[in-house]
Design a protein around this nucleic acid. Sequence first.
DNA 1: TACCACTATACGGTATCACCGAGTAGCGGT
DNA 2: ACCGCTACTCGGTGATACCGTATAGTGGTA
Lengths: 108, 108
Amino acid sequence: MDDLTEMLKGTLEGCVLEIIGSEETYGYAITRRLNELGFAGVVEGTVYTILLRLERNGLVQVAKRPSGVGPPRKFYALNDAGREELGKFWVKWQYVSSRIDRLKEGGR
Amino acid sequence: MDDLTEMLKGTLEGCVLEIIGSEETYGYAITRRLNELGFAGVVEGTVYTILLRLERNGLVQVAKRPSGVGPPRKFYALNDAGREELGKFWVKWQYVSSRIDRLKEGGR
DNA sequence: TACCACTATACGGTATCACCGAGTAGCGGT
DNA sequence: ACCGCTACTCGGTGATACCGTATAGTGGTA
């Protein structure tokens, strides 16, 4: 699959929220998770910019912990605002994707 | 539904391609069509920038025709390159949307 | 000891995209 | 003469994902 960059704009952040929401985790692992989910081109740098943005916007709670196999990890978990944002993301996704699918199917 | 801007990035152009592909039409009408399809916030300016981009990228064929109810209209139709691009867009959409839906459903 | 691979994060700069606002213009009705 | 609807153009903005580079900890190997 060729470049998905443009199509992921506006959705990748939601995907990261969902991953964090299902389990407290850190940037490097989130990148691996996205890759195995099929978002093969997503690299660390991209995920870290999203995580820093989530932190800046007060949607996550952060805890630094030692790793044992490398530098310390920054673990992320959703707070109340983050869970609310995630809910809104899925509502929006449902809305947009259903309209696009309708357009695809001859669009009435 | 609040602002869909970010989520439409990378997909709105494809939607416009699909609309043009199903019928030769012009900017103002495309905007109305998008609005009635549920993309309520999309305005003329946005659609025109997409159309100019499609033209610049050689994906459409353009014909100016008088209107009777206003200024002349620029009618757009897909050429071969446009049809190919539209095909690629739907493949990509299918790929991305299915992965996101999978993530939503507990994501294995 | 030196090097490399893997793990892990940060950050400045770039390209793309949808949007906004102001401008231009044709037509019909009051 | 004015307003509303139709119709297109264009310069500038903000948000987002990406890229490249730098920094740094751990373990393996020559």
